[in-house]
C-alpha cells in the first residue's frame, strides 16, 4: 500500500462508465451526515436528548406513561435538532466549500439535490425510529419506576402523522439551507423566523386566518394527536407550501444557476 509507484492509474482506458445511481448518491449524502465530528456529535446529542426526555417522563410522577405518550414526547428533541442536520447537509457544502468537489463529480446539480432531500427523509424516518425504540424502553421500564401499567396502545394513523411532521421539519431545514447556503444564517433564521411569525400572527387577531393556514407550528400541532380531519391536512399543506416548498424551490433555482467557486 505504501509503495508509491509512478503509476498514475493504469493507462487511460476508453470504457464508458455509467452515471452513479440515485441510491448511491443518497448513500453518499447519508455518509456525509455522520462522517464529520460536527455531524457525529449532533447525532449523539439527539440520541442523548431523546434518552433525557424518556428519563424525565419516567421519573416525573404526573407525566402520562402510556407508550403513545412516550412516543409523542420523544418527538420533541428530534423535531428541534434533526432539522439542523438537514440544514448542515446542504450548507456545509458551501461553508466547507466541498460543493466544488460534489458538483464536479456530479455536474447535474439537481441529482445531488434530490439525493440530499431523500437522505434527509431517511434521517427523519430514522429519527422517528429512534424515538420509537426509546419509547419501547420507557414503556418496559414504566412499572419499575411508577405505579402505572404498561400500555402499548398506539394507532397507525398517529405513527404516520408523526412521520409526516418529522419529514417535513427536516425538509424545512434542507429548504432553508438551500435558500441561504450559509450554516449560521440558515440555522438562526430557521429558528427565529417561524417563531417571530407565530408570535405575530397569534397576537394580532386580524391575522387569525394566517395563523390557521400558514403558521407551520400551529398547523402541525394537531398531527401529534389522533384524528386529523381533511381541513387539518389542508391547513398543514398550505403552511408546508410557505415554509418548505417555497424556500426549497427558490433555493433549488439558486443552486442550479449559481457559480460554484
Amino acid at each position: 500500500m505504501s509503495t508509491a509507484t509512478l503509476d498514475a492509474g493504469r493507462a487511460p482506458t476508453g470504457t464508458a462508465p455509467t452515471a452513479p445511481s440515485l441510491l448511491r448518491l443518497v448513500r453518499v449524502e447519508l455518509r456525509k451526515s455522520y462522517d464529520t465530528r460536527a455531524g457525529r456529535w449532533l447525532l449523539i446529542v439527539i440520541g442523548l436528548a431523546v434518552l433525557a426526555v424518556v428519563a424525565i417522563s419516567l421519573f416525573v410522577e404526573d407525566a402520562p406513561k402510556r407508550f403513545t405518550d412516550h412516543f409523542g414526547i420523544t418527538q420533541l428533541p428530534i423535531s428541534i435538532l434533526l432539522p439542523v442536520l438537514g440544514i448542515l447537509l446542504v450548507t456545509s457544502e458551501w461553508s466547507q466549500r466541498t460543493a466544488m468537489t460534489t458538483f464536479t463529480l456530479v455536474p447535474r446539480r439537481s441529482r445531488v439535490l434530490v439525493a440530499k432531500v431523500l437522505a434527509a427523509t431517511v434521517l427523519a424516518v430514522l429519527g422517528v425510529a429512534v424515538a420509537a425504540l426509546a419509547s419501547v424502553l420507557a414503556t418496559v421500564l414504566t412499572p419499575v419506576f411508577s405505579d402505572a401499567e404498561r400500555d402499548w396502545d398506539i394507532t397507525a394513523a398517529l405513527v404516520g402523522q408523526v412521520l409526516v411532521v418529522q419529514v417535513v421539519s427536516v425538509l424545512a431545514g434542507v429548504a432553508f439551507g438551500m435558500l441561504l447556503l450559509s450554516s449560521p444564517l440558515a440555522i438562526v433564521l430557521y429558528f427565529v423566523l417561524p417563531t417571530v411569525f407565530t408570535i405575530l400572527v397569534s397576537l394580532i387577531s386580524a391575522l387569525d386566518w394566517v395563523r390557521d393556514w400558514l403558521d407551520l407550528s400551529t398547523t402541525s400541532m394537531p398531527l401529534f394527536e389522533d384524528g386529523v380531519d381533511a381541513q387539518g391536512w389542508l391547513q398543514f399543506g398550505t403552511s408546508v407550501g410557505l415554509w418548505v416548498a417555497l424556500p426549497m424551490l427558490l433555493g433549488w433555482v439558486r443552486i442550479q444557476r449559481s457559480e460554484i467557486a
Binding site: P17, P20, V28, D35, T36, S92, A99, L105
Partner: peptide
C-alpha cells in the same frame, strides 16, 4: 475546498462511492 473535519481517506472514500 475540502471539509476540514474529514480525514484524507474519508474524503477519497466519498468520491470513490460516487465514482463507483
Amino acid at each position: 475546498a475540502q471539509h476540514a473535519g474529514r480525514t484524507g481517506r474519508e474524503t477519497l472514500t466519498l468520491a470513490a462511492m460516487v465514482l463507483g
